[in-house]
Design a binder for these strands. Structure first.
Lengths: 157, 157
DNA sequence: CGCATGTACTTGCAAACGCAACGATTGCAC
DNA sequence: GTGCAATCGTTGCGTTTGCAAGTACATGCG
């Protein structure tokens, strides 16, 4: 793509695999960030949170504790607290205490949250495909992209 | 590993590949961050920067512009400016203007920087291996880990 | 030569993050 | 029942980040 890629390729050091992973992640993340932020006033991680919580909600009720949510979105507990708070303030989420253990806090996606999520999903998916395609052109990123796409295709069930 | 993994696995939505990539990146990054920060007062991105610049330096002289450095470490230009400034203030890097184009700025790793890098490399590599091994135990992350390790082994030349 | 356009880096500012400290709740021992 | 350790979530604080605006340099045109 850019002439930079060559330099970057040459600059890869002792851990090209991790380097490529990092590079790929960064590019996809940036792309998603711009797309979601521009179209739906939603950050990539906010989208990720909604996605996770909505799928948790799939079966019966929301049963993820803040702890687990933090793991799921790959964030510290404090950051998760604020992330949830932010979305709660926007009316996209609702907290409620676990009846049996009042230390635990569950989170539900509100109808508004689900609506926004459904609305943002096409944007997200399109941006993801764009980023993946762009990265696939990079020789050093291609194998990773392939792995990712294989996972995307395989784990539908 | 943790019981959370099951929940996370179940929560993976329409883009399991990207999700797994994100998860893997986050875990490795966090692990590297802690290891490097604790042992060498160095953030993961600072290490990454030193690594890139030192390899750029391999051939002859430092010839990466801030622009390219930003791409290489997957950061915005502004963040790169400050990152370089920080390391420069610590005496690990040195800026110098491009003679032919005074807009461009090159960056060299100082002897102190190289020393710290050599000192930190084992920590980095060990932490990376740990994180990779830990992630390999995750069924959903295993294929990605495999790809990464294949790249690590293959692109030695 | 002087001016407009474009590129490269830096700085102002607000948002988000992680770590460590804290308050709240539970479980267990005595 | 009281006290102590462990767990869960939140808040204080400093650091890092990205976007947008600003400054310096280069290139092309009159």
């Amino acid at each position: 793509m850019t002439a930079t890629d060559d330099v970057v390729s040459a600059a890869v050091g002792a851990a090209p695999g991790w380097y490529a992973l990092s590079l790929l992640h960064g590019r996809i993340d940036a792309h998603l960030e711009r797309a979601l932020q521009g179209a739906h006033e939603l950050s990539a991680r906010e989208y990720s949170l909604l996605e996770v919580l909505s799928h948790q909600h799939d079966g019966e009720g929301g049963h993820l504790r803040m702890n687990q949510v933090a793991e799921a979105v790959v964030l510290s507990q404090s950051a998760t607290t604020r992330l949830v708070t932010r979305l709660e303030d926007r009316g996209l989420l609702a907290r409620y205490l676990c009846p049996t253990d009042r230390r635990g806090i569950y989170t539900d996606v509100t109808p508004a949250g689900l609506a926004l999520l459904d609305q943002a999903r096409p944007t997200h998916d399109a941006a993801l495909r764009e980023a993946l395609d762009a990265a696939g052109a990079d020789a050093r990123l291609a194998p990773l992209v392939e792995s990712v796409e294989r996972l995307n295709g395989a784990a539908v069930g």
